[in-house]
Amino acid sequence: MSAAATTPVPARPKKRRGRRNLTLTIGLVVTIAFIAMAAVSFFYLPHNPNVPRIPDRLLPAGSPRYLLGTDALGRDIFSQLMVGARTSLMVGAGGALIALVIGTIAGLSAAAFGRIADETISRSADIMLSIPGMVTALVLAATIGSGTLTTILALSAFFTPSFTRVIRSAALSVLQEDFITAARLYARPTWFILLRHVLPNVAGVMIVQFTLYFAAGILTEAGLSYLGVGVTRPSISWGMMLNEAQQQVGISSPLAMWPGLSIVIVVLGLNLLGDGLRDVLDPKLARRTS
């Protein structure tokens, strides 16, 4: 028998991943800080963010007792930001998660269960995509009233079709690989192939998409709340803070700056995380470099 080298290729030195790791690290740090901020808000807040304190109104940042100052009604800005982070986390992650679950099931089914299933699911997704997200949100808000749950539902309805599309195309490219043919040859049923072979191979795509839609969810929620159809007090959202600040901009612009800055930093961080994860998880890139 011909001599065959069994020695597998030695692992590639990790150093090359340097620049990618920087993106990933920044994204990870911002995201963890954001989640920590939201988590702490459940146990500890410097002040009650909903109780007005007229004597303390419009204090500047760095005032004693008020880290980032107070708003027009004397409510602590930092406390409001913390509770706002909680809302953003719930709404962004919740919306993206529901969309992820439904989109994955729909996308896999469209890819694997034949033309009729594919046509039905893909056309439905197209129709849903053609309705602007804001319209969905406004209709929902008008029918079941605005609030956190409504916003989550609106976001997931808005994201599900794009998720479905992404998962469908990723699954299609996995399904045409030869190892699927091999599994079919062993008479594995379709559901088994989907769970055992397709799902692990699209998991990377799922995680990356989740982070990106998480960010988009935060942004959209801020937009909705800014328009006054998102969450309502006693919940607090960064978009709502922007809205309230805008009524006072003539008086104190830092009021708009803090929630605005929070939105920008968190959305940017999540996007960096998504990009970093894409580089690490994308099997095509991994294959190319090995």
């Binding site: 030869d178 091999a182 072979h197 191979n201 099997p283 294959r287």
Partner: peptide, 9 residues
């Protein structure tokens, strides 16, 4: 051969 084995298995 690259596509006939599941990369995650």
């Amino acid at each position: 051969p690259r596509s006939s084995l599941d990369p995650r298995m």
